[in-house]
Each structure stands twice: as C-alpha cells, then as structure tokens.
C-alpha cells in the first residue's frame, strides 16, 4: 500500500485462524519499513503504527458468527482505540467481518446468496464515498474468496449509509453476488472490504488493482 519510500510501520493482527498472513505481509513489505505481525493475545503500542491491518481468514473457525470471537481479542482493544483516534485501519475479508463485529463499522456479513464458498474475480464499482481518507481506484477487478460475504443492515440504516456516502465499492451486476463490497466509517479512516487487494498487485497476479489502494497522504 502506501509509501514506496519504505518508511513507517504497519501492524498485521494475527488471530487463531487467520490465513492471509503470507500475502498480506508480502503486500505491505515493499511499502513499509517494518511490517509487524501482532499475535491477537498481545496488547501493543498501536499509536506507534501508521497502519493497522486485520487480515483475511477464519478467525476462531467462524465460531458463533464470522468475526465475533476475534473482535473480543486483547489486541483488538488497541486496534479500536487506534481506529477511533483516526488511525488508518483496513480489514480485508475476515478482517471486514471483525471490523463489523467490533462496532468499528456498522452491519454484519452473512452467508452469500450462492450459499457456499465462492472463489472468483469480481468487478467493483467505486461509489465515491465522501470523507474517505483512502485513495481508491475507480473501476476495479479483484478476487473474492468467502462464504459469508453478503453485507446486511436493516433497510433504514442501510439507506443512511448510502445517503451519508459510506459505501466505497459495490459489485458490478453479477449472477450470484450483489450489494456492498467495501465500506468506510463516518470519519473515513476505517475501511472494510470483502475482495482481496493483497492478492492482486504483484506482476504475477492476474490483476494489479490492489497496488493503487492507499491511505490518503501516501507519497507514491
């Protein structure tokens, strides 16, 4: 993500069941001087970081509901504090589910329309969220890989998200998948997304859109 100068520090929180640690660290390495993997049970000095990442996976085996247990991990207390003070925080896939379950983002991620795990590339449409403290490219193709990827919020609250411009990406019309793919909070510093930018940036990946996703103020 940000800063090709390789300065700054990024923290990747590792929960039991996280499984995107490899590609998430590889994705951040070219941009940050330090990429620290934080074990979920360890408290950490969040304010010394420039970015906090909640990676994808199946934290706690999706027990109760995807993200529920992880949202209550000791390290999450520091993440929540960091995010509420404006720190750039991104949750990808299971990370998005954890953000929703921890209250940093509204709503919940439920079983997708297809009803089974689904791995494919999807086209996303940027809905130009206001306040967003991230640079996000316009038209994007990214991979998804999840079972519980359908964002849900009761209608009245859902329309408020749209009205207030918190929706970052929606899925381009596809047979089995629709609705919100990425979402930000009111302040615009917390970003949750189901698609995987960390699997679409390197020369060998089918697409490289992920490398253009940056927190504001990053100097490329």
């Amino acid at each position: 993500m940000p800063k090709l100068s390789r300065s700054g520090k990024a923290a990747v929180i590792f929960f039991p069941g996280s499984n995107c640690d490899q590609e998430t660290c590889a994705f951040l390495n070219p941009f940050y001087q330090n990429v620290d993997v934080i074990w979920h049970r360890d408290r950490f000095e969040a304010k010394s970081y420039d970015l906090v990442v909640l990676p994808g996976g199946f934290s706690y085996g999706d027990y109760v509901r995807a993200g529920v247990c992880a949202a209550r991990s000791p390290a999450m207390a520091d993440v929540i504090h960091f995010a509420k003070n404006g720190g750039p925080t991104i949750g990808i896939c299971n990370g998005f589910q954890i953000l929703a379950e921890s209250g940093l983002l509204p709503g919940v991620l439920i079983r997708s329309e297809l009803g089974r795990f689904d791995c494919r590339y999807v086209s996303l449409k940027n809905t130009s969220a206001s306040n967003l403290k991230w640079q996000v490219p316009e038209q994007v193709i990214l991979p998804i890989a999840n079972t519980f990827g359908r964002f849900y919020l009761p209608d009245d609250q859902d329309s408020r998200l749209w009205n207030e411009g918190h929706v970052v990406y929606t899925y381009e019309s596809q047979e089995s998948i629709s609705g919100i793919a990425a979402l930000t909070n009111r302040e615009g510093n917390v970003l949750g997304m189901m698609p995987h930018p960390e699997r679409a940036w390197a020369p060998h990946h089918a697409y490289q859109f992920g490398s253009r996703l940056l927190p504001n103020g990053s100097d490329l």
Partner: peptide, 15 residues
C-alpha cells in the same frame, strides 16, 4: 473448483 481458494497465499500465477 470455485469452492476452493485458488488465490490464498498470493502465489498463484494461473487460474
């Protein structure tokens, strides 16, 4: 095949 995660790990070159 679509029920298998082909991209996890970030190393896959060909679908």
């Amino acid at each position: 095949v679509r029920q298998y995660d082909q991209h996890v790990g970030g190393r896959a070159v060909l679908d």
